[in-house]
Design a protein around this nucleic acid. Structure first.
Lengths: 251, 251
DNA sequence: CTTTGAAAGTGTGTTAATGACACATAGCTA
DNA sequence: TAGCTATGTGTCATTAACACACTTTCAAAG
């Protein structure tokens, strides 16, 4: 990795980075992908962070975010959306942060403003071993995430807020589910994101009214209860709905 | 102005700027504050742009945006909200842009990513003469704005989009009106922002139901028609509504 | 001083969306 | 074959959204 950095060092912009809040769903809880920098020498605690990197001077911000995602998950063409810029001069001011930066960056003291993105990935598609990015990486349930490096906690809150607002208006949740899924899984997903219970029947009615789900001639197998109908996301009707501005929607 | 820049040159970050899309309302149309760089030597046309500047290394992004606003309008504590970061490597690639930058910046060729903000100002409070910022500055009706310098056209669109989305959910329009205003003025404002007609009676009902307007014991005077009731924005009830998440709302 | 023009202000009926709520069904397992 | 577990389904009451037209008040003009 350091070889890579050296080769491109001239193009690395020391002042601007991107950070990616990557959400995943395991049919039970909402998760976030975190990297681990290893143990801090001073505090002895591990530093968890959201993946991110300085940008290259010849790439757009979106390209940088996609690159980070690709490097980390190996996945291309993921749902990705900008959250905003974070630029407190002291955002990397903690001792343990500085320590980490020294081992990582050519100019560890440079002022860095970061542009945050959030992305939704199908946990199935992502193989955690594929990471060539950090010492280790893994999924953490959102509810169990405590302190993070830099201002990443704030970034995470902000990204989660944006996801909540967004999913109330625009059906983007499918990006977190496998291609074939059940309505209960979708229901659970919405409850996890919005962090509140939703009435089952009303939820089904609303989602089905959108006409963006295609029922398949397939059912769950091997479950110890009534097997449920599988559905597929219907890209075509979604486009139609999208062009109308997702008006008849709301949770 | 160049003296100011020289004094603080060491602290200026060459890679990050803020740009402020400043909206105003003249009781008829939505306007945007633009600065004029003077005539380009190559194209002979004037370069209009949204006000913006490189940030100092010891200020937050919000502070930078507030500073730019202060320098331009003399007004403090204005409604201000981040729109997002814009970072296309070619965003300042036009010849006329480069020409302008050379006259303006210590490192005119540096890659600059910019963080856009939008703000709402009461046009009454703003004295255009007060500007110490650009060769000239003035209000332009949104509908008449054509090409702008850099990627400012895109930034403007984006800010306007955010304003539209926001005002549907959160009653922030009062920031564009004087302290005392009529319902018709507010009505017109909403129509201008959303760029579509809204039914008068339904509009009045909805706004009044929010209970964030205090009717005053005052009426318009000197108008050649039935004088209308004046209202004032009620900060206290707004806070109450705010804490409930602005649920019962929507245009 | 009467007429005219111009915007303010006001209420109802219809339709669509929302939210609350309970029981029968299908498949697996013990 | 009895029991467990999650699926799947309909109605009613309430609330929000939308469409729509006439009277009132003032100033200005004649």
């Amino acid at each position: 990795m350091s070889a890579v950095i050296k080769n491109k060092a001239l193009e690395l912009n020391p002042n601007v980075s991107v950070d990616c809040v990557i959400f995943g769903f395991d049919f039970d809880q909402l998760h976030c992908l975190l990297i681990d920098s290893g143990l801090s020498k001073t505090t002895g605690r591990s530093r968890l962070a959201v993946p991110g990197d300085l940008i290259y001077d010849n790439e757009t911000l979106d390209e940088a975010a996609n690159r980070v995602l690709k490097e980390l998950t190996g996945i291309n063409n993921i749902y990705l959306e900008q959250v905003g810029a974070f630029g407190d001069p002291n955002r990397m001011g903690k001792e343990s942060d500085k320590e980490w930066l020294k081992s990582l960056r050519a100019e560890p003291d440079a002022r860095v403003i970061t542009v945050a993105y959030f992305s939704l990935v199908k946990m199935n598609d992502f193989n955690p071993e594929a990471s060539s990015f950090a010492e280790s990486a893994g999924w953490a349930p959102i509810k169990e995430i405590d302190e993070l490096a830099f201002d990443h906690r704030e970034i995470l809150e902000c990204a989660l807020g944006q996801l909540k607002r967004k999913i109330k208006i625009q059906p983007i949740g499918f990006n977190l589910l496998p291609q074939k899924f059940t309505l209960s899984q979708l229901h659970k997903l919405y409850e996890s994101i919005l962090n509140k219970p939703l009435d089952k029947r009303n939820f089904r009615r609303k989602i089905l009214n959108l006409k963006i789900l295609t029922p398949l001639n397939e059912k769950q197998v091997g479950v110890p209860h009534k097997p449920s109908q599988l559905f597929e996301f219907n890209e075509e009707n979604y486009q139609k709905l999208s062009s109308e501005g997702f008006d008849n929607f709301g949770f």
